[in-house]
């Protein structure tokens, strides 16, 4: 594998990360959401792996393995198990409908390219040009959190934010230390497990997973 090819691979995989993020806004079927998340996790792992070749750092290669295991395999399958107990469930009526969401997403992507221009210029490495993709993923994830009603969509949104942060970290700092990535990944895994338990408890207690109907937070 040449350097040029590995750079191309980083760019392609980063593009896939953003594309899957947009996909989560587009699809209403919760199973499709999980699939998008799985693809995103694998793409993120691919970014790390290609970066490991590009920089020549075995540590990042190991990070790639961890990312693949946690974000590509474990978390999506945990979420898929939750969805399987409630087949046919859809994000039927989001607070902002799909076409409008896609328009907003394009706005967010433009915004992140504008903002990222501030700091991508600091480094000459071609990889840093990819930072806006991660930032856009973060914003789209946040947008998903704000506009979707189902608990599963919310969890997906949270994971999008995390994946976006990871992508920014990879391309800007040429890979995070193994220890940090390990800590973050395990934290996210733990959060997903906790949320999974909460979702199950919600279903038992309220019979639905519609966050919009929960107003108990109001003092």
């Amino acid at each position: 594998m040449t350097l040029g090819f590995s750079l191309d691979l980083v760019e392609l995989a980063s593009g896939i990360v953003l594309a899957t993020a947009v996909l989560t806004l587009w699809r209403k079927d919760l199973r499709a959401l999980i699939s998008a998340l799985r693809i995103q996790g694998i793409a993120l792992a691919a970014v790390a792996a290609a970066l490991a070749f590009y920089i020549g750092d075995a540590g990042i290669g190991f990070v790639a393995v961890v990312v693949f295991a946690v974000k590509g395999l474990v978390i999506p399958s945990l979420l898929a198990r939750v969805v399987r107990t409630d087949p046919g469930s859809r994000e039927a009526d989001p607070l902002i409908n799909v076409p409008a969401s896609l328009v907003v997403a394009s706005g967010l992507i433009v915004l992140s390219f504008l903002v990222a221009g501030q700091f991508t210029g600091l480094l000459s490495d071609p990889v840093t040009r990819l930072a806006p993709l991660g930032l856009a993923t973060v914003l789209i994830g946040f947008f998903l959190l704000v506009t979707r009603r189902k608990a599963i969509s919310q969890i997906v949104g949270l994971l999008l934010v995390d994946n976006g942060v990871a992508l920014v970290a990879f391309v800007l700092t040429a890979g995070v230390p193994l220890l940090v990535e390990l800590g973050v990944s395990l934290d996210v895994l733990l959060a997903v497990v906790v949320l999974q338990v909460l979702v199950a408890a919600m279903r038992v207690r309220f019979g639905h997973l519609d966050l919009d109907q929960l107003r108990e937070l109001h003092d």
């Binding site: 915004l111 903002v115 501030q118 914003l139 946040f142 947008f143 966050l211 108990e216 109001h218």
Partner: peptide, 25 residues
């Protein structure tokens, strides 16, 4: 303003983030 809706609370954060980013450009 805080009416108990999770979405509204999240929207506060989201709008604030977008505004800060927009101010940065």
């Amino acid at each position: 303003v805080p009416n108990g809706s999770v979405h509204r609370y999240l929207a506060f954060g989201f709008v604030a983030l977008v505004l800060v980013l927009a101010a940065l450009t």
